[in-house]
Design a protein around this nucleic acid. Structure first.
Lengths: 189, 189
DNA sequence: GCGCTATGAGTCAAGGTGTCTCATAGAATG
DNA sequence: CATTCTATGAGACACCTTGACTCATAGCGC
């Protein structure tokens, strides 16, 4: 990416990104404008223009600085891996900035191609990791699935995502354990 | 509500609401401004101000004109009712305007109290209807649930919502049947 | 036909946006 | 340390949008 070593450049860049992320978190994506970001970052308005001529690209990069809860690479036993990863995902979705990025992504993806590409990438990674983990578990005789592996992401992540973004509550361990138990017949406890 | 019988008033009101809904669907909530709505509706800009002094209230009312997929009042047998209602909900979530309203609601609820109230109302209605239906089913001996009834909405609606808003695909009958089967032990087929 | 009123076109000030210039401070180089 | 380069901040500028107002007009109920 940009390898400009000038510390002034990097300082401004980081200050602007932080300010944009704060504004997104506090006031939503519409608050990420050149003027508001510049004031929050303590830099000149022209500086923001030089770094990001368009506000939507700044918003996109600011959103990218928030670590989204993707799943770690699968390990065995798969059931323990699932418990661990879904619990982590649920905890991450309780963080205000993660929830802000997730809902903003889902919403703006409907009208912005760049955001839609990020949404698709996010969905694909989650689905692929789950599919690969469950395929492995099946091959190892750990589980017999009750649904197509392509539905696993919706089945497992959907409830946690809904609980967080629509019901605004925490996805407890009971719900997570029920989900894992319901995805198939486990031979391991 | 407003019972002004003057047809001019009602005509303008409907034209403005339709235009706002179209703009929301085509360009997203940020496109619902007085100027754009007025042009789309074919009315004067001042007329939009007279009807809705603030754009966010216009957006809220325009969103309210899109019928959101709540569940019908529960009937028995509960399993058939669930299949029917969840299938309808999945179909509704495939409509572009329903998806636009749902994701806009989830997103703006984080920064707008009025929208958050609507989100909470929506979540409560779904959870209550499902809870009441499943309580009835349990009392009738139709099913033994494998999770607290308060988790039913996340468990059943979450995957459909995730499939639609994140994966941008249809929730097929296989997924829906699997969900219903997994929520407990059914004594009825 | 006659009041009444919502409308549309227009004006206007205020504020935000995008673009440019220029002096300056900070960084790299010798 | 001196010199050169460059990112910056402040400001100026035209442009557009927003919010608020006026007023003649057309459509409505009576």
């Amino acid at each position: 990416m940009n390898t400009d070593p000038d510390p002034r450049f990097q300082r401004s860049r980081q200050a602007i990104l932080s300010a944009a992320r704060e504004l997104l978190l506090e006031k939503g994506p519409v608050a990420v404008t050149h003027a508001q970001v510049a004031e929050r970052a303590g830099v000149g308005r022209a500086t923001v223009y030089r770094h990001w001529p368009r506000p939507d690209e700044l918003l996109a990069e600011a959103m990218a600085t928030v670590p989204m809860p993707l799943l770690d690479n699968p390990t065995v036993p798969t059931r323990q891996w699932l418990t661990r990863e879904l619990t982590t995902l649920a905890q991450q979705l309780e963080l205000a900035d993660v929830r802000a990025v997730a809902t903003t992504l889902a919403s703006t993806a409907l009208w912005d191609h760049q955001m839609d590409a990020r949404r698709a990438q996010f969905a694909t990674i989650l689905a692929d990791r789950l599919a690969s983990a469950l395929d492995t578990a099946h091959d190892r005789g750990e589980v017999t699935l009750t649904l197509p592996v392509r539905d696993a992401a919706a089945f497992l992540v959907g409830p946690i995502y809904y609980r967080s973004t629509i019901e605004h509550g925490p996805a407890g361990s009971t719900l997570i354990e029920t989900l894992i138990a319901a995805i198939g017949t486990w031979t391991t406890p």
